[in-house]
Design a protein around this nucleic acid. Sequence first.
DNA 1: GATACATTTTGCACTAGTTGTAAATGATTG
DNA 2: CAATCATTTACAACTAGTGCAAAATGTATC
Lengths: 155, 155
Amino acid sequence: MRSPDELSDLFRASGRKVTPQRRRIFELLEGNSSHPTAESIYLELVKDMPTVSLKTVYMTLKELEEMGEVQCLDLGMGSSRFDPNVDGEHHHLVCVSCGKVRDFQLSQNWDLKLQVPDEMFSVSKAEIVFRGTCATCRVIGSRSVVENSDKVHIS
Amino acid sequence: MRSPDELSDLFRASGRKVTPQRRRIFELLEGNSSHPTAESIYLELVKDMPTVSLKTVYMTLKELEEMGEVQCLDLGMGSSRFDPNVDGEHHHLVCVSCGKVRDFQLSQNWDLKLQVPDEMFSVSKAEIVFRGTCATCRVIGSRSVVENSDKVHIS
DNA sequence: GATACATTTTGCACTAGTTGTAAATGATTG
DNA sequence: CAATCATTTACAACTAGTGCAAAATGTATC
């Protein structure tokens, strides 16, 4: 994702307005590798702007997604996660214990798209989701049940 | 997924009861490669059992999932898809035009799990989602806009 | 800096998908 | 065939996200 300044210019250049809400959302996303939900961005946002609405967050994220500045991830955890890392192709590690999501780059240079015969299906995007347990949760799990802020209900 | 008969035995063996509703759901899933939603299974089910509830479908699917007899897929299309194919590791082709989902086997023998260093993250499952356009939709798309029963809203 | 106007924000109602509750039903076992 | 306890059902509730319209506010232009 571009910097808040660059995004502001881009927005204005395309006839969009740069409101304080949007500006702040840009800032909250910049360099954010926590794969936040719309809700979690909203919770940060209300700290500064008590009257902001969740709808605004959703709208801004959708625009950023349409502009290719963020990626919307559906990892089957109830709500969409947003990833400002869109420059390099990467994959995701999803911890089934704490729910944390982490970017992951393949070390081997596999071109996944080439796996699918083009006559059969024209691939525009191929992404791997690795599910498992992160290092932190493995340690915690081996000791005792500990409350984790990001804890997710695994049914 | 096992056959309805085998599933019935398994259910009984684990103290569960085999109701006509469950039995019919087993049958509807057997060999079903359409990756149905709970809703679409329900719609088939009501044809035979007019008073069946959607809740029953969800509950039975959840049990089958817990028993490892079906896989629940969250592909970011609003609702979960269920896949009775759990015997071989396979991946999914998701058509962004018509919403159809199709199983796909890698021809190359890549072990995705080995890509992630175990100290970093302990992978229990790795799945690739290929998004793009299926052969049918490509042809349709090159002609004109045609109504497709599985059409999905792409925003 | 003031003006005009389209864009945005907000609050609220609403949808879709899914789950919780509790009473009624019914499969299984002895 | 009766007792037991899982299951089903209807319905309400919940979560994530969207549609709507009035009010507010950036931005280009003067």
